[in-house]
Amino acid sequence: MRFSIYRFDPDADANPYMKDYDVELEAGDKMLLDALILIKAQDDSLSLRKSCREGVCGSDAMNINGRNGLACITPLSALKEPIELLPLPGLPVIRDLVVDMEPFFRQYRSIRPYLINNDPPPETERLQSPEERAELDGLYECILCACCTTACPSFWWNPDKFVGPAGLLQAWRFISDSRDQATSERLDDLEDPYRLFRCHSIMNCVDVCPKELNPTEAIGKIKAMMVRRKI
């Protein structure tokens, strides 16, 4: 199979370039990450992140034939050759397929992604009905891979001001939690021309999410809640 991979080592290269690799491999039921490991065995200078290899840790997000995804759960059989691999768009490149994720995580941290409840904790668990708990489904499963946020044109333009789909999905996760008491502060924090309202429902986030989550819907619910509290 033929691959064309973005290469850039700031220690050695003046400019990034695309490098071709040929790998003897039957696509079969193999994943893109399997091919990248074979390529790295040929050329150990190719840098990428990888960890769980089963789509739960979010390390190996990259741009695959023009679309963000996780290498470990992208079947080779679904990809057209030459398979073109680029780092996630919209973030500074550290080297090859490794990007600086800090702008993404800064926005995640900015939404105060933790349960806020100032009551003294009971001796056992706080109760939550199965229906209340079901409100968190489709939200808590986010793996922070950044596929969605780095596919979002609004984030490309304003990475320092727009929270982005992943952060907003988590904002809604905590607003939706029956145990959380900070809804009004959370909404105040997002009531801003950039932090929330730069989302124009382009829906690239929904399209690329490898966990099939729906940030656009969550953002819509936050907006609706803001409207409701005004009237």
Binding site: P130, Y140, R179
Partner: peptide, 16 residues
């Protein structure tokens, strides 16, 4: 129980 208080989204029984 501490993890629940920290916000861990445990699945729930009918009685919460």
């Amino acid at each position: 129980y501490e993890m629940e208080h920290f916000g861990l989204p445990f699945s729930r029984l009918q009685n919460g």
